[in-house]
Amino acid sequence: MERGHYVQLKSNVWKWQIGSDMYSIKKYDIQEEADKIRFIHEQLTIMGEDLMVPIEPYPDPLIIQQPWIDSGRKVQFSNKEDRFKSISLLHQLHNSGRNIKWEKSSHFQEIDLIRKWKHRLEKWQQLEEFLHQKLGSSKTKEITQLAKNSINQLVPISRNRLTLLHGDVVHHNFVRDKNNKLYLIDFDLACLGPAEVELILWSHRVLPHYDYNLKVLIQDHPSLRRIDWNYLLFPNELMREWLYATTLSDLQLRMFLPKLKIFTDKALQRMPQLWDEVNP
Protein backbone atom coordinates (compact mmCIF):
# COMPACT_ATOMS: atom_id res chain seq x y z
CA MET A 1 0.00 0.00 0.00
CA GLU A 2 0.95 3.66 -0.29
CA ARG A 3 3.10 5.56 2.23
CA GLY A 4 1.47 7.14 5.28
CA HIS A 5 0.20 5.98 8.65
CA TYR A 6 -2.16 2.98 8.79
CA VAL A 7 -4.38 1.72 11.60
CA GLN A 8 -5.80 -1.73 10.95
CA LEU A 9 -9.48 -1.95 11.90
CA LYS A 10 -10.33 -5.36 10.45
CA SER A 11 -8.37 -8.03 8.62
CA ASN A 12 -8.93 -6.17 5.32
CA VAL A 13 -9.81 -2.63 6.45
CA TRP A 14 -7.47 0.20 7.45
CA LYS A 15 -7.71 3.83 8.42
CA TRP A 16 -5.05 5.60 6.37
CA GLN A 17 -3.65 9.03 7.18
CA ILE A 18 -1.36 10.87 4.81
CA GLY A 19 -0.64 14.41 5.90
CA SER A 20 -3.90 15.98 7.05
CA ASP A 21 -6.03 13.68 4.88
CA MET A 22 -7.61 10.46 6.13
CA TYR A 23 -9.13 7.61 4.17
CA SER A 24 -10.79 4.25 4.58
CA ILE A 25 -8.89 1.49 2.77
CA LYS A 26 -10.57 -1.85 2.07
CA LYS A 27 -8.77 -4.67 0.28
CA TYR A 28 -10.71 -7.42 -1.47
CA ASP A 29 -9.48 -10.92 -2.22
CA ILE A 30 -11.10 -10.96 -5.66
CA GLN A 31 -11.07 -8.08 -8.13
CA GLU A 32 -14.66 -8.80 -9.16
CA GLU A 33 -15.77 -7.87 -5.62
CA ALA A 34 -14.00 -4.50 -5.77
CA ASP A 35 -15.29 -3.95 -9.32
CA LYS A 36 -18.83 -4.49 -8.05
CA ILE A 37 -18.44 -1.66 -5.52
CA ARG A 38 -16.96 0.64 -8.16
CA PHE A 39 -19.78 -0.22 -10.58
CA ILE A 40 -22.48 0.64 -8.02
CA HIS A 41 -20.77 3.95 -7.24
CA GLU A 42 -20.32 4.82 -10.92
CA GLN A 43 -23.95 4.10 -11.80
CA LEU A 44 -25.35 6.02 -8.84
CA THR A 45 -23.03 8.95 -9.56
CA ILE A 46 -24.13 9.09 -13.20
CA MET A 47 -27.73 9.34 -12.03
CA GLY A 48 -26.84 12.07 -9.52
CA GLU A 49 -27.48 9.86 -6.50
CA ASP A 50 -25.08 10.62 -3.63
CA LEU A 51 -25.94 7.62 -1.46
CA MET A 52 -22.38 6.34 -1.13
CA VAL A 53 -19.22 7.86 0.28
CA PRO A 54 -17.16 8.88 -2.80
CA ILE A 55 -14.54 6.45 -4.10
CA GLU A 56 -11.03 7.80 -4.67
CA PRO A 57 -8.66 6.54 -7.39
CA TYR A 58 -6.18 3.91 -6.16
CA PRO A 59 -3.51 2.06 -8.18
CA ASP A 60 -4.34 -1.40 -6.79
CA PRO A 61 -7.58 -2.74 -8.40
CA LEU A 62 -8.24 -4.86 -5.30
CA ILE A 63 -8.51 -1.79 -3.07
CA ILE A 64 -11.39 0.61 -2.52
CA GLN A 65 -10.30 3.96 -1.09
CA GLN A 66 -12.85 6.38 0.33
CA PRO A 67 -12.61 9.56 2.43
CA TRP A 68 -12.69 8.79 6.13
CA ILE A 69 -15.81 10.19 7.78
CA ASP A 70 -14.03 11.26 10.94
CA SER A 71 -17.12 12.53 12.67
CA GLY A 72 -19.19 9.70 11.29
CA ARG A 73 -22.00 8.82 13.65
CA LYS A 74 -23.80 5.56 13.10
CA VAL A 75 -27.56 5.48 12.94
CA GLN A 76 -29.39 4.17 15.99
CA PHE A 77 -32.69 2.48 15.21
CA SER A 78 -33.86 3.37 18.70
CA ASN A 79 -33.91 6.99 17.51
CA LYS A 80 -37.06 7.99 15.61
CA GLU A 81 -35.31 10.51 13.37
CA ASP A 82 -32.67 7.94 12.45
CA ARG A 83 -35.36 5.44 11.49
CA PHE A 84 -37.03 7.97 9.20
CA LYS A 85 -33.75 8.97 7.56
CA SER A 86 -32.52 5.41 7.08
CA ILE A 87 -35.69 4.16 5.39
CA SER A 88 -35.73 7.29 3.23
CA LEU A 89 -32.21 6.47 2.07
CA LEU A 90 -33.29 2.92 1.24
CA HIS A 91 -36.23 4.23 -0.80
CA GLN A 92 -33.79 6.45 -2.69
CA LEU A 93 -31.55 3.46 -3.41
CA HIS A 94 -34.45 1.25 -4.52
CA ASN A 95 -35.89 3.97 -6.76
CA SER A 96 -32.61 4.05 -8.67
CA GLY A 97 -33.93 0.95 -10.44
CA ARG A 98 -36.29 3.18 -12.40
CA ASN A 99 -33.33 4.58 -14.35
CA ILE A 100 -30.57 1.99 -13.89
CA LYS A 101 -31.04 -1.53 -15.25
CA TRP A 102 -29.25 -3.25 -12.39
CA GLU A 103 -30.54 -6.65 -13.52
CA LYS A 104 -28.49 -6.41 -16.73
CA SER A 105 -25.23 -6.41 -14.79
CA SER A 106 -23.38 -9.65 -14.04
CA HIS A 107 -22.23 -8.27 -10.68
CA PHE A 108 -25.36 -9.20 -8.74
CA GLN A 109 -27.15 -12.32 -7.64
CA GLU A 110 -30.87 -12.29 -6.93
CA ILE A 111 -31.97 -12.79 -3.34
CA ASP A 112 -34.48 -15.51 -2.44
CA LEU A 113 -35.62 -14.62 1.06
CA ILE A 114 -37.63 -17.78 1.72
CA ARG A 115 -34.70 -19.94 0.67
CA LYS A 116 -32.36 -17.87 2.83
CA TRP A 117 -34.59 -18.29 5.87
CA LYS A 118 -35.00 -22.03 5.27
CA HIS A 119 -31.22 -22.30 5.28
CA ARG A 120 -31.10 -20.29 8.51
CA LEU A 121 -33.61 -22.65 10.10
CA GLU A 122 -31.56 -25.67 9.01
CA LYS A 123 -28.44 -24.15 10.57
CA TRP A 124 -30.41 -23.35 13.73
CA GLN A 125 -31.51 -26.97 14.04
CA GLN A 126 -27.95 -28.19 13.53
CA LEU A 127 -26.87 -26.13 16.55
CA GLU A 128 -29.63 -27.25 18.90
CA GLU A 129 -27.19 -28.75 21.42
CA PHE A 130 -25.60 -25.32 21.97
CA LEU A 131 -29.01 -23.62 21.99
CA HIS A 132 -30.52 -26.04 24.49
CA GLN A 133 -27.55 -25.44 26.77
CA LYS A 134 -27.43 -21.63 26.54
CA LEU A 135 -31.01 -20.67 25.67
CA GLY A 136 -32.94 -23.59 27.15
CA SER A 137 -34.88 -26.36 25.44
CA SER A 138 -38.30 -24.73 25.85
CA LYS A 139 -37.34 -21.41 24.25
CA THR A 140 -35.29 -23.14 21.55
CA LYS A 141 -38.31 -25.23 20.58
CA GLU A 142 -40.58 -22.18 20.69
CA ILE A 143 -38.37 -20.24 18.28
CA THR A 144 -38.03 -23.29 16.02
CA GLN A 145 -41.81 -23.66 15.86
CA LEU A 146 -42.30 -19.94 15.18
CA ALA A 147 -39.87 -20.21 12.27
CA LYS A 148 -41.55 -23.31 10.83
CA ASN A 149 -45.05 -21.85 11.15
CA SER A 150 -43.96 -18.63 9.50
CA ILE A 151 -42.17 -20.24 6.56
CA ASN A 152 -45.10 -22.56 5.88
CA GLN A 153 -47.44 -19.63 5.22
CA LEU A 154 -45.11 -17.39 3.21
CA VAL A 155 -45.97 -16.63 -0.41
CA PRO A 156 -43.05 -15.78 -2.73
CA ILE A 157 -42.71 -12.05 -3.40
CA SER A 158 -43.35 -10.91 -6.96
CA ARG A 159 -40.18 -10.53 -9.05
CA ASN A 160 -41.77 -8.13 -11.53
CA ARG A 161 -39.76 -5.11 -10.36
CA LEU A 162 -36.19 -5.96 -9.43
CA THR A 163 -33.85 -3.27 -8.18
CA LEU A 164 -30.59 -2.90 -6.29
CA LEU A 165 -30.74 -3.90 -2.63
CA HIS A 166 -28.02 -2.95 -0.17
CA GLY A 167 -28.13 -6.42 1.34
CA ASP A 168 -27.18 -5.62 4.95
CA VAL A 169 -29.32 -2.92 6.55
CA VAL A 170 -27.77 -3.14 10.01
CA HIS A 171 -27.65 0.24 11.75
CA HIS A 172 -23.88 0.70 11.50
CA ASN A 173 -24.05 0.62 7.70
CA PHE A 174 -25.77 4.01 7.83
CA VAL A 175 -23.32 6.79 8.76
CA ARG A 176 -23.46 10.57 8.74
CA ASP A 177 -20.68 13.06 8.17
CA LYS A 178 -19.95 16.31 10.01
CA ASN A 179 -22.61 18.05 7.92
CA ASN A 180 -25.22 15.47 9.00
CA LYS A 181 -25.29 14.00 5.49
CA LEU A 182 -26.34 10.34 5.67
CA TYR A 183 -24.61 7.65 3.61
CA LEU A 184 -24.93 3.92 3.09
CA ILE A 185 -21.63 2.07 3.44
CA ASP A 186 -20.43 -1.50 2.89
CA PHE A 187 -22.19 -2.67 -0.27
CA ASP A 188 -20.39 -6.03 -0.23
CA LEU A 189 -23.69 -7.94 0.03
CA ALA A 190 -25.54 -5.82 -2.53
CA CYS A 191 -27.90 -7.93 -4.62
CA LEU A 192 -30.96 -7.83 -6.84
CA GLY A 193 -34.48 -8.18 -5.53
CA PRO A 194 -37.85 -6.53 -5.05
CA ALA A 195 -37.63 -3.44 -2.83
CA GLU A 196 -40.16 -5.15 -0.56
CA VAL A 197 -37.52 -7.67 0.53
CA GLU A 198 -35.23 -5.00 1.95
CA LEU A 199 -38.12 -3.16 3.59
CA ILE A 200 -39.04 -6.43 5.30
CA LEU A 201 -35.48 -6.87 6.57
CA TRP A 202 -35.33 -3.24 7.73
CA SER A 203 -38.66 -3.74 9.53
CA HIS A 204 -37.20 -6.74 11.35
CA ARG A 205 -34.36 -4.53 12.57
CA VAL A 206 -36.60 -1.76 13.89
CA LEU A 207 -39.60 -3.74 15.21
CA PRO A 208 -38.00 -4.33 18.64
CA HIS A 209 -37.81 -0.54 19.03
CA TYR A 210 -41.57 -0.39 18.45
CA ASP A 211 -42.12 -3.06 21.09
CA TYR A 212 -43.26 -5.27 18.16
CA ASN A 213 -46.30 -3.04 17.66
CA LEU A 214 -47.05 -3.30 13.94
CA LYS A 215 -49.76 -0.64 14.02
CA VAL A 216 -47.39 2.03 15.31
CA LEU A 217 -44.67 0.97 12.86
CA ILE A 218 -47.07 1.37 9.93
CA GLN A 219 -48.31 4.71 11.23
CA ASP A 220 -44.76 6.03 11.26
CA HIS A 221 -43.83 4.47 7.90
CA PRO A 222 -46.89 4.18 5.60
CA SER A 223 -44.73 2.81 2.77
CA LEU A 224 -44.60 -0.46 4.73
CA ARG A 225 -48.30 -1.01 4.06
CA ARG A 226 -47.35 -2.61 0.76
CA ILE A 227 -45.20 -5.38 2.23
CA ASP A 228 -46.53 -8.83 3.11
CA TRP A 229 -46.69 -8.60 6.89
CA ASN A 230 -46.52 -12.38 7.22
CA TYR A 231 -42.80 -11.99 6.55
CA LEU A 232 -42.51 -10.11 9.83
CA LEU A 233 -43.52 -13.24 11.76
CA PHE A 234 -40.31 -15.13 11.03
CA PRO A 235 -38.07 -14.82 14.14
CA ASN A 236 -35.23 -13.53 12.01
CA GLU A 237 -33.47 -11.30 14.53
CA LEU A 238 -33.65 -13.88 17.31
CA MET A 239 -32.15 -16.60 15.14
CA ARG A 240 -29.51 -14.31 13.67
CA GLU A 241 -28.31 -13.13 17.09
CA TRP A 242 -28.20 -16.63 18.57
CA LEU A 243 -26.37 -18.01 15.55
CA TYR A 244 -23.90 -15.16 15.91
CA ALA A 245 -23.45 -16.17 19.56
CA THR A 246 -22.18 -19.58 18.45
CA THR A 247 -19.18 -17.88 16.80
CA LEU A 248 -17.99 -16.09 19.95
CA SER A 249 -15.20 -17.05 22.31
CA ASP A 250 -16.12 -18.12 25.84
CA LEU A 251 -15.26 -14.67 27.21
CA GLN A 252 -17.19 -12.85 24.50
CA LEU A 253 -20.15 -15.15 25.00
CA ARG A 254 -20.27 -14.51 28.76
CA MET A 255 -20.44 -10.79 28.07
CA PHE A 256 -22.98 -11.11 25.25
CA LEU A 257 -25.45 -13.61 26.73
CA PRO A 258 -27.14 -11.47 29.43
CA LYS A 259 -28.18 -8.81 26.92
CA LEU A 260 -29.20 -11.43 24.36
CA LYS A 261 -31.39 -13.26 26.87
CA ILE A 262 -33.21 -10.04 27.76
CA PHE A 263 -33.77 -9.36 24.05
CA THR A 264 -35.01 -12.93 23.56
CA ASP A 265 -37.44 -12.87 26.47
CA LYS A 266 -38.97 -9.60 25.29
CA ALA A 267 -39.32 -10.85 21.72
CA LEU A 268 -40.97 -14.11 22.76
CA GLN A 269 -43.33 -12.20 25.02
CA ARG A 270 -44.39 -9.85 22.20
CA MET A 271 -44.46 -12.25 19.24
CA PRO A 272 -47.97 -13.63 19.99
CA GLN A 273 -49.30 -10.05 19.84
CA LEU A 274 -47.62 -9.59 16.45
CA TRP A 275 -49.13 -12.82 15.14
CA ASP A 276 -52.57 -11.61 16.23
CA GLU A 277 -52.06 -8.28 14.44
CA VAL A 278 -50.98 -9.93 11.20
CA ASN A 279 -53.54 -12.74 11.30
CA PRO A 280 -56.52 -11.42 13.31
Rank of each mutant, 00 (worst) to 15 (best):
H209A: 00
N149K: 11
W229R: 07
T144R: 00
D220W: 01
D50L: 07
Y210K: 12
D220H: 06
S71D: 10
W242K: 03
H166R: 12
E241R: 14
Q92G: 02
L184P: 02
A34R: 00
S138K: 10
V175F: 01
G136N: 10
L184S: 01
A195Q: 11
W117L: 13
I30F: 07
L253H: 10
R83M: 06
K74H: 13
L243P: 00
L89V: 07
D21E: 11
V278A: 08
Q76F: 09
R83D: 03
L201D: 07
L248S: 11
M271K: 01
N236Q: 09
Q273Y: 09
E110R: 14
N95T: 04
I63C: 08
K181H: 13
A34G: 01
K10M: 09
Q8E: 14
L251N: 08
T144C: 07
K101Q: 12
N12Y: 08
A147C: 09
E142R: 15
N152M: 03
S137T: 12
K141F: 01
K266W: 08
N149Q: 09
L182P: 10
D29S: 11
E2M: 13
I111K: 14
H132G: 02
P258N: 10
G193Y: 00
F234R: 02
I200Y: 09
N149D: 12
P272D: 03
N279V: 03
W16E: 02
